[in-house]
Design a binder for these strands. Structure first.
Lengths: 221, 221
DNA sequence: ACCATAAATCTACGATGTAGATTTATGGTG
DNA sequence: CACCATAAATCTACATCGTAGATTTATGGT
């Protein structure tokens, strides 16, 4: 294809794991995760499909490598003189930004994080520190940490594939709700009838504030 | 294979959409989602692969059909004389039971629910009713509902693929944490050092209680 | 001069989803 | 009774996928 077989010349540019992962990530970002095949990746790299296997054992390793790359882009925010709530908010914002930057990889990302990954440990340490500082007991810290992470993952998922994420879905939801017999879903009718679309989409962080309010009841106790 | 081609005789048993979906679900439950291919499904049904296409347009329809079946198994609990917290707890328990009954389908399930599905609307109505009854304002109802669902989805995901779900993962986590330099993750060391495995796994619902505590601050306000 | 070795290519295999043609008998119609 | 559109399945075939195995080519070390 691009290069001929044979050992590369001294100044010759060789394929690298980093280059492969970066290109794969680019394909996933621009064309979706189904568009990523070894052969498709190879043609984009200008290389024979099997050339990839010199640098990665199989496709699973390619996927995990992408997860690794994306997580390595993640930096836990460093904040001074901010209370625990501010720290949790900052973390949530960083995490949201991360998954938003690679929407097509989210599902695979969330379902394939290794608990041993450095980024995961860093996250745990960051949240533990903030929550200990808030005055929670050990078991409370674990519970709160798990809730925050579960919520963020669930939110990310909903945003990438659920009703959220696409603005027109709201419209569909409203028209559907209104097309149904009025007595069928009275509570939803009342609730959503009192709100407009702009209000609903205005703030991503309302749910997080609810979590923070819950945690705070533990702080006072 | 089992039957010969040709129009079926009067009393002949024919393949049905329901039968196909049930067998597919059984394969996924017992052998994992990767084990489900059209050909594999056909041999289990004792039928030619292409016979399936008389009843379902393609594999995506098969998958969506399975989601539909699983969700149709879901019944929102009917409770009398229970406060809003009890209703939310009952719902969470039902939802957890649902995803737990088909662990291998969870990821696809969560990422392919249609907002228009009857079960989804029923869930929305159920939670809206409980939360309105609790005394929340419309926007608060929406926020609380979204949080509960996002959390439950995130939890289900973590249970099916994350550190949770497999008991030995805890052990790995502990040994990993202890193998690292002590000053590296001081907060996690302190937090997890104060707890044993049994305490951590004791209760699934601690995180939900945290959410309920948060919502309650809105009720009082 | 020789040769193990690195980085790629070429060839080939089995599995997958599915389009298209074919088989077989049915129940309705002249 | 003869005929035929139609239903439910099968058979055949193709493009695509991941990847095992053999091959090509030049390198740097001995």
């Amino acid at each position: 294809m691009a290069r001929r077989p044979g050992r590369p010349k001294s100044g010759d540019e060789v394929l690298s794991r980093e280059q492969i992962l970066a290109t794969a990530l680019q394909i996933v970002d621009t064309e979706g995760i189904d568009a990523l095949s070894m052969r498709r990746l190879a043609t984009t790299l200008g290389v024979d499909p099997m050339a990839i296997y010199r640098h990665l054992p199989d496709k699973a390793a390619l996927m995990d490598g992408m997860v690794e790359v994306v997580f390595s882009e993640f930096r836990v925010p460093r904040l001074e003189g901010v209370d625990w709530k501010g720290q949790v908010r900052a973390f949530a914002a960083s995490y949201r930004a991360l998954v938003k930057s690679h929407p097509n990889l989210i599902v695979y990302l969330i379902t394939h994080v290794e608990a041993s990954a450095p980024a995961v440990l860093a996250v745990g340490e960051y949240l533990s520190t903030a929550l200990v500082q808030a005055g929670l007991a050990p078991l409370q810290v674990v519970t709160a940490t798990n809730l925050i992470i579960d919520y963020l993952n669930g939110f990310a998922l909903g945003e990438s594939s659920g009703m959220l994420g696409k603005p027109e879905a709201y419209q569909n939801f409203y028209t559907l709700l209104n097309s149904l017999p009025a007595e069928r879903y009275p509570s939803m009718r009342a609730v959503y009838g009192a709100l407009n679309e702009a209000t609903l989409q205005a703030d991503d962080a309302r749910e997080l504030e609810l979590i923070l309010a819950g945690i705070e009841t533990w702080v006072c106790a």
